[in-house]
Every structure is written in structure tokens, then in C-alpha cells.
Design a protein around this nucleic acid. Structure first.
Length: 589
RNA sequence: GGGGGCGUAGCUCAACUGGUUCAGAGCGCUGCCCUGUCACGGCAGAGGUUGCGGGUUCGAGCCCCGUCGCUCCCGCCA
């Protein structure tokens, strides 16, 4: 009795057909005589009716059905009696009158209900322990299906554009400058280790030297860093690299991909090309290099208005070469002192010395600092910040990087407090990042992204004189305040790459040689100009599903402590395994 | 490494300031009844070491210390 249809397939035109369905008992409604079963499979629900007057044997057997029993049913599709159709189900116009019932496998009572609606969702730890049950929930099945569709669309898109999907090694070599890596001891090479790749970066560049020209891969990547709602220790990237291109080619390519993905996954047209914003502008206006541009509340620079101010905090910041910036939280004058204190704590945790504010209530400016302001300063602020009754103005005064960070965070928190409408899909290219940032701890320059990023051509002469002024040919794709991905045009000249390693980043010559020597060698054999990008595939799928959490789009994710609760991994291993690997443990027990 | 939240029945949660509604509700589960339900309905019932270990107290689900687990954030994620 093989099934003829799935559970979201039968409609009015199938009426009178004899069909077979198989699936799980979703719910049972036993009226004593007639019995209704909602039969569930991956695709949906179909109501099956057992009628003792029609088939006493099947009806009798159906009394014993319980949640999650696996059954097969043979029956006739028929219209539901007038008035009993269920408009909530796609299959709600019909039902299957069962002739035969086979219990393929009974089920114990599940530890939680396999149900999306009903209001109670079991705790995530329990759902992770019984992930195979959690994945039966229609919303999770939907997520898996959507993820598949996005993957398929991606592969089709790149195939149509002449790309080859090439697999790169999972057993790679340690490259300690980036994220912490997972290490794999080598049995046949005692004392030596592989590392799992944080990304296929170096391999994809080698593929360009190899003449592949257009490469992509749905690549598994691994980072042994602490987890977040949008970070798992293993995750998937849409990894791309192309030869003979410039930044414009990459923007167009990715815009086309995302337009196609949105079309397939959500049936929505997204406008292209996407707007672009230089890094400096993003920081000045939004205090973030991944600005959420769905709402305003932008940072406004008022430094000039306080150059002569009597308020020492503001004037001092300007005198020291810093800035004074403010944002207007429209309508938040009702904020409580406790909430102000919380905001201040937040500001301090990001490096601010405090958080000055003005409440505009009852036609007055209420603030501990308002007494320091003269009329000109007040007028300037009123105009620049469009201050009105009911507003709350929040200030940052410090080095500009600190003010960016602090007000950027405050802006997001305040938007949350105000429940500001954030709708639509605001794609944005953030461009012109600084190639290098100075690290005060180690007293040297570090690559903002990675050391393979090429400089903007006109800035190259500054590499020797003003490294911090050099812009990289790097681009981030941002959607609604989430960094979806990033990439760059790469350095392809061996002398330039060597110079970046040794002269600019001050990586000792021997270390540069052991870690990247093969790249420099490769570049000497006719490396084409090339560039690439990588998009966070899990984040992309989560956004498309409307979830803030990438665990919802990963079949078997790990907890915040990087545990797999279903298999209890990681776990201890046998002493013999360790001996084979030449590994001795040093752990407290 | 640091900070916040949570942990009470199989599940989701309640239990005011530590004390006579102090172990409760809804769902699920079990039994009986029920022939058009789809959150089916009715009657009855079972089910608890309040995560674990200490402590304070006449008295602890509630307070304190430790510990374990889940979660969010900071650091970290070239």
C-alpha cells in the first residue's frame, strides 16, 4: 500500500479517487462512533475519517491510534459535508474516507506536543534533545524546505552565470590571525595538527590562480568562538570568487542573486541596484558599519555649536579633537529615571563617560545640564535636531569612535523602547572601509578585514605615509541592520602582498613565509586580478524565515555552550584513540 | 573571561513581602461516555525530592552561598 499522494495534495478535483496516504497522527478526534484523524507529513495535513458504518474493522482499529503513530491509510477522497469544510486547511474542502488502516509503527507519548499553534512552545533545550521531534513541527519543516530552496536557487543562479562549485578541504592548516580554530590532531604526523577552515579564503584565491575564473561553494566554516543567536561554531557561507572583475561586477552579481532568492523564497521583488554608503557616512549618521536604515533617529553632529560652550564636558571633547553628537528619540520624554540610568550604564559599558540628556516636557527642557547652555546653543540644537515637545535628546561627547559606538548602540535600544516601525527590506552596500586600523594594544596596524584586501587605487601611495587613511576595496552587504556578508577585491601582485604582510602589518618575515609563502609563490605565476565575497547562508535563511535565531534554520544546531544535546557531543574518547593521536590530556577532573 | 534572565507535574506557566486558598491552573496522559469534529465535547483519575548541594530561619518554591543546565548580551568572531 504505497502512498499515492502527500498530505497537502488532495483537493476538490481528486474527489472520488481512491488514494493512499502515509504519515503521522497529528491529532485524533474520537467521537465514539466516527473518528477523525489529522494525518501529517512534511507537506501538510489531511483529515482522514473512520466511519464504523463504512468499515467497522478500520474504525475499530483507529480507536487505538495515538499522537505520532505512523500509519498508512487507503481510502476515497470525498467532499466534506456542506458546512463542515475547514477553511484553515489547504486540504479543508475534502477528506479521505478510510477503507484500510495499517499501523506502521506506534509511538510513545512524545515529551512535548508537536504543534506550532496552541500557544505553548516547549523549551529549546528539550526541543534540541528531541530535535527529530522538533523538526516534525510544521514551522520547522517549512524552514528546512525554505533553506533547501534558497540553496537550490543559489546553485542555479551561479551555474547560469558560469560559476563552478568547487569543494575545498575541511582539513586545513592553522592560520592563527583570525578566529580561534578547531584543531584536528594528525595520527600519521605525530605532534602536527590540521585546523578546520574559518573560511575557504586562501583556497578560493588559489582557484583563481588556477584559472577557475568563477568559483562558488556552499561552504561549511568553523570558528571556535563564543556563540550568539546568530553565531554557531559551524555554519555555512555562500562563498564566491571571480577573476577579471571590479567592485561593480560584484555588486551586480550579488544583487541579482538576492533578487532571485527573494523571488523564490518569498515571492517578492526587491529593487536593485542597492544603495551604497561609505563607511564614514554609516558611522557618522548611524554609529554602525551595519546600519539599520529602516528608521531615522540619526546621529547629528553639534560639535561646532559647542566650541565655545560653558559646558566643559562638551567643550572639552571638542578641544581634545573629539566630537559632540546627539540623537533625538522622538516622543521618549516620558522615560523614567531608571530607564535613563540603564541607558547610561549601557553608554558607559561602551566607553562613554556618561550620557547627557534633555527631556522636552511641558514646553521646558528638563536636564541637569541645560543650565550651561546659552540661547544660541539652544537655538542651534532645536534647529538641527528638530526638537519638539515630548522629545528626548541623548548626547555623546568623546573621541569620535567612542561617540559612534555609544550612540549607535543607544539608537538601537531607544528604537526598541519606542517600538519604532521597522519594515521592508533595506539592502545596503557599505563601502570604503579603512584598510587598516591601528591597534593600541599591540601598537601596530591590523587589517580591518583580512590582509588580502586590495587598497583603493588612488590611496595606494598613502600605504607608506598614512596607512590609516588608505581605503580598502572592501564591501559589506547589509540588510536591515544585519551584516549578511562581505568581501573585497584582492591583492594579486606578489610584491604588494609581501609589502602588506611585512611593512604595513609588521608580520615577521619568517612567519609570513611559513603561513602565506605558498600564496606569494602562486602569485608569481600569473595570478589574475580577482575578488570575492561570502554571505552568511544561515543568517540569510533566518531572515527569510522571519527568525532572529539561526538555530531555527539549522537542522542540528548547538547550544550556547557548543553542545549537541541530542547526541551529547562533544564527549570523552577512549585512551587508545588519544594514544593513536599522540595526545595527552591535561584537564582537571 | 564578564554581566543579565530563567529553572515548580510529561509540556507551558502561576503561587503578593518568607507563614491556613502551599504545592495550583491550562494543555497533554489514563479510563469511561459520545456519529461531523477540526483548540471536538462530557465525567472521572493519575501525575511533584519546586534542577542539584549546602546555609539562614520557629518556618524556605520564595532569602544567602555554591554548583549544573538553557538563554540573551559584552569581550571575542582577521
Amino acid at each position: 500500500m504505497k502512498r499515492t499522494h502527500h498530505c497537502n495534495e488532495l483537493r476538490a478535483p481528486h474527489i472520488v479517487q481512491t488514494v493512499s496516504l502515509a504519515g503521522w497522527v497529528h491529532v485524533r478526534r474520537d467521537h465514539g462512533g466516527i473518528i477523525f484523524i489529522d494525518l501529517r507529513d512534511r507537506e501538510g495535513l489531511t483529515q482522514v475519517v473512520f466511519d464504523p458504518e463504512h468499515n467497522p474493522k478500520a474504525a475499530e482499529l483507529s480507536h487505538g491510534l495515538r499522537s505520532e503513530f505512523v500509519i498508512a491509510v487507503e481510502g476515497t477522497v470525498r467532499a466534506r459535508p456542506a458546512g463542515t469544510e475547514n477553511p484553515k486547511l489547504p486540504t479543508g474542502a475534502i477528506e479521505v474516507l478510510a477503507h484500510n488502516l495499517t499501523v506502521l509503527n506506534p509511538s510513545e507519548t512524545p515529551p512535548f506536543q508537536i504543534e506550532d499553534s496552541g500557544g505553548t512552545l516547549a523549551g529549546e533545550d528539550l526541543r534540541l534533545q528531541y530535535r527529530y521531534l522538533d523538526l516534525r513541527r510544521p514551522s520547522m519543516a517549512k524552514n528546512l524546505i525554505l533553506r533547501h530552496k534558497v540553496a537550490k536557487t543559489t546553485r542555479d543562479y551561479f551555474d547560469q552565470h558560469g560559476f563552478l562549485e568547487v569543494e575545498t578541504p575541511i582539513l586545513f592548516k592553522s592560520t592563527p590571525e583570525g578566529a580561534r580554530e578547531y584543531l584536528v590532531p594528525s595520527r600519521v604526523n605525530p605532534g602536527k595538527f590540521y585546523a578546520l577552515p574559518q573560511s575557504p579564503q586562501q583556497f578560493k584565491q588559489m582557484l583563481m590562480v588556477a584559472g577557475v575564473e568563477r568559483y562558488f561553494q556552499l561552504a561549511k566554516c568553523f570558528r571556535d568562538e563564543d556563540l550568539r543567536a546568530d553565531r554557531q561554531p559551524e555554519f555555512t557561507q555562500i562563498d564566491v570568487e571571480m577573476s577579471f572583475i571590479d567592485r561593480e561586477d560584484m555588486y551586480a552579481l550579488i544583487e541579482g542573486l538576492l533578487a532571485q532568492v527573494w523571488q523564490v523564497a518569498r515571492g517578492e521583488k526587491i529593487p536593485t541596484p542597492f544603495p551604497r554608503m561609505p563607511y564614514i557616512e554609516a558611522m557618522e549618521r548611524f554609529g554602525s558599519d551595519k546600519p539599520d536604515t529602516r528608521f531615522g533617529m540619526e546621529l547629528v553632529d553639534v560639535s561646532d555649536d559647542f566650541k565655545q560652550s560653558k559646558f566643559k564636558v562638551f567643550r572639552g571633547a571638542v578641544d581634545a579633537g573629539g566630537v559632540v553628537k546627539a540623537l533625538n528619540a522622538k516622543g521618549l520624554a516620558c522615560v523614567t529615571q531608571g530607564q535613563i540610568d540603564n541607558l547610561t550604564e549601557t553608554a558607559k559599558s561602551f566607553g562613554a563617560k556618561g550620557l547627557a540628556f534633555i527631556k522636552v516636557e511641558g514646553g521646558q527642557w528638563k536636564s541637569p545640564i541645560v543650565k550651561f547652555f546659552n540661547d544660541a546653543e539652544k537655538a542651534a540644537m532645536t534647529a538641527k535636531l528638530k526638537i519638539e515637545e515630548g522629545d528626548l535628546i541623548l548626547f555623546g561627547a568623546d573621541k569620535r569612535e567612542v561617540v559612534w559606538e555609544v550612540l549607535g548602540r543607544i539608537r538601537l535600544i531607544v528604537a526598541e523602547m519606542l517600538n519604532v516601525k521597522r519594515e521592508g527590506w533595506n539592502f545596503l552596500w557599505v563601502v570604503d572601509f579603512p584598510l587598516m586600523t591601528f591597534d593600541h594594544e599591540t601598537n601596530r596596524y591590523l587589517s580591518t578585514h583580512h590582509p588580502f584586501t586590495a587598497a583603493v587605487a588612488e590611496d595606494v601611495p598613502l600605504l607608506d605615509t598614512d596607512p590609516h587613511k588608505v581605503r580598502g576595496q572592501h564591501y559589506d552587504i547589509v540588510l536591515n541592520g544585519v551584516e549578511l556578508g562581505g568581501g573585497s577585491i584582492r591583492i594579486h601582485q606578489p610584491d604588494v602582498q609581501k609589502k602588506v604582510f611585512e611593512d604595513v602589518l609588521k608580520i615577521p618575515k619568517e612567519i609570513a613565509e611559513t603561513r602565506f609563502g605558498y600564496m606569494l609563490t602562486a602569485f608569481r605565476y600569473g595570478a589574475p586580478p580577482h575578488g570575492g565575497i561570502a554571505l552568511g547562508f544561515d543568517r540569510l535563511c533566518a531572515i527569510l524565515c522571519g527568525s532572529a535565531n539561526i538555530r531555527d534554520v539549522i537542522a542540528f544546531p548547538k547550544t550556547a555552550k557548543a553542545m549537541d544535546l541530542m547526541t551529547n557531543s562533544p564527549a570523552e574518547v577512549e585512551p587508545k584513540q588519544l594514544r593513536d593521536l599522540h595526545v595527552k590530556l591535561d584537564v582537571e577532573t
